Simulated assay, not measured.
Amino acid sequence: MARLRTWCTPAVAALALGLAGCGDRDDAAGTTPASAPAATTAAPPTPTAPEPPAPEPPPRPLPGLPPDTAGFEDWPRLNAAPIPPDSAQTARVGFDAHRGVKNVHVDQPGARAGDPGPPYPDGTVLVKAAGTGGDLTLVAIMRKVAGSDPAHGDWEYVEYKRTGAGQDFATDASLTGATCWSCHAIAAGTDWVFTPADPG
């Protein structure tokens, strides 16, 4: 019996080593354990919304002119065509106070169609721009301010001049008040505004 135990122990050990060696060979051959995670596919990138366009910068007034005239060149124009010197409107006064080719702009969106028209609402700004050869040298402004001057339509008047392109506009006391309304009184029946809204 002692001999059998002695012989069995080495035999069992040899068998265990042989089985262990077989397991090593299977792993070396590239067998993947059952517990290995499966390969995953990356999710496609989420599309991003395009950047909105940058807003347009606000218009700036011409040099020397007040802020409420900024961008007046793009406001509705009362006259369908530029007004030449010595026009029919100036004949009512007897002389052309604003020499040069003129355009009259108003900050009321529907003014060209006559809505609003005379009388203009409180807060209206009218700009008459005059010059020669496309160079503006005069800007006359009328502002409707309720209660400011009831005797003269509640309009405030001021005129700015410059000698040429690249210069700043400037005004003085002689280019405001009675200097302006003394002529515009002739047009009191059309809310002190000479230029009618032309159709078109």
Rank of each mutant, 00 (worst) to 15 (best):
S174G: 08
L175Y: 08
D74R: 09
L62K: 07
P76N: 01
A178S: 13
Y157P: 01
W7I: 15
V93K: 07
P52V: 04
T176C: 11
L19C: 13
A14F: 11
T179N: 10
D191R: 03
R60M: 11
P52N: 14
V193S: 06
T132S: 11
A113R: 11
H98W: 12
D172V: 07
A13S: 13
G23L: 12
G114D: 02
L78Y: 00
T46A: 13
D149G: 06
P199I: 09
C8T: 15
C183A: 05
T124V: 02
L4I: 15
P118E: 06
G133S: 07
G166D: 12
L126T: 05
T124K: 00
D135L: 15
V101E: 11
G189Q: 15
A11M: 09
G177Q: 09
P82A: 01
A54T: 08
D122E: 14
A34H: 08
G133P: 03
S35V: 12
L62I: 04
G18D: 12
W75I: 01
L15Q: 08
P58Q: 02
E159Q: 10
R77K: 09
D191M: 01
M1S: 14
D24L: 15
A187H: 10
C180E: 05
G189I: 12
T6D: 11
W75G: 00
V127R: 00
A42P: 13
A29S: 13
D96E: 06
H105N: 10
R99Y: 12
D154L: 12
T90N: 12
G133R: 08
A113M: 09
R162C: 01
T69A: 07
P63H: 07
A38R: 12
A29P: 14
A38E: 15
M142R: 10
S35R: 10
A188V: 09
E51K: 10
H105Y: 13
L62Q: 12
F72V: 00
T190Y: 08
G123A: 06
F72R: 00
T190A: 14
A14P: 07
W75M: 00
D135S: 14
P45M: 06
L17T: 15
T171Y: 04
P85E: 06
P45H: 05
A28G: 11
T31A: 15
K161T: 15
R99Q: 12
P116L: 00
W155K: 00
P55D: 00
H98Q: 04
Y157A: 11
P118Q: 07
P85M: 03
A178M: 13
A197F: 04
A80S: 04
G200M: 05
A42K: 08
L19D: 13
P59Y: 01
Q89K: 06
T40V: 11
